[in-house]
């Protein structure tokens, strides 16, 4: 198939334009990078800053401990994310129940989301890890587990609202169609409403999971040593801040896949909308 001269001309023009914009982008990135490096390394305090924040030997020395701490972050993130998603979904479903029989349940679920979205995480964490063990009950779980529970409680408050927004975004006609086929309320929720709701709110759900990833470290306030706390211990020993940079880099590396997934899901959701 041969293209008309007009189309050939159009394609050639577009190719030239693409090449040009790539060149411009590369050049401007390079210029900006050089400027930044010159500005930072040329600063009067650069030598001292490099010494106390970017010391390779301190980094090597602290890495094993920081990694051990990071492993705690990862485990906590995994279990807390699952717990908060599950609890959030349950609370959201309870809030959508209709009918006077469910009034107390609805009230409780609503109160839950109001309370734990308003209450600072640190306070929930202190109450759970310092207050609850004071009850001296039999079979009291470890501080780590209690801290995890505090995270789950707080985050499920947010996630419940995200789920609820998703559930309410499904048009009532979908419910009517499902019920008219003889599906029960539960079957309707499970097969018709929730699949559509979760798809729609997947981006904000994942966003909250990224936020949770940064907050799980707060359990170290109650004792367990996470990556940041491990870095802090090393800093206190050596009076060098490099371990914080090590921990920071690891956190970012850990977040990259999650953030990339979030972006991908968001993009896909946006495409499906149009």
């Amino acid at each position: 198939m041969t293209l008309s001269p007009a189309q050939q001309d159009r394609l050639a023009y577009r190719r030239r334009q693409t090449l040009l914009s790539v060149l411009v982008a590369a050049l401007s990135t390079l210029v900006l990078g050089v400027l930044l490096v010159v500005a930072v390394t040329g600063a009067p305090g650069w030598a001292r800053v490099r010494e106390s924040f970017l010391d390779a030997s301190v980094a090597r020395e602290s890495l094993p401990d920081v990694l051990r701490g990071l492993w705690l972050n990862i485990r906590l993130l995994f279990f807390c994310a699952i717990g908060a998603l599950a609890l959030g979904l349950v609370v959201a479903l309870l809030r959508t129940l209709r009918g006077p029989v469910f009034f107390p349940v609805r009230l409780l679920a609503t109160g839950y989301t109001y309370t734990f979205r308003g209450l600072p995480l640190i306070i929930v964490l202190y109450v759970m890890t310092l207050g609850v063990p004071g009850l001296r009950l039999q079979g009291m779980p470890s501080t780590l587990v209690l801290g995890g529970i505090a995270l789950v409680i707080t985050y499920s408050g947010y996630l419940a609202e995200v789920f609820r927004a998703g559930i309410e975004s499904v048009h009532p006609s979908q419910l009517a169609a499902a019920r008219s086929l003889g599906l029960t309320y539960r079957q309707t929720m499970r097969h018709v409403v929730l699949p559509q709701a979760v798809r729609r709110v997947a981006p904000p759900l994942l966003n909250d999971t990224v936020a949770l990833q940064k907050d799980v470290g707060l359990v170290s306030l109650a004792g367990p040593i996470d990556a940041v706390r491990a870095a802090q211990i090393h800093t206190a020993e050596t009076f060098n801040y490099t371990p914080y940079i090590v921990a920071g880099v690891l956190f970012v590396l850990l977040a990259i896949p999650l953030i990339a997934i979030t972006d991908w899901v968001t993009l896909r959701a946006a495409r499906r909308q149009s």
């Binding site: 006609s173 979908q174 009517a176 169609a177 499902a178 018709v192 559509q196």
Partner: peptide
């Protein structure tokens, strides 16, 4: 229904 209401 008029609007079909298939499950998307």
């Amino acid at each position: 229904f008029q609007a079909y209401n298939l499950f998307p």
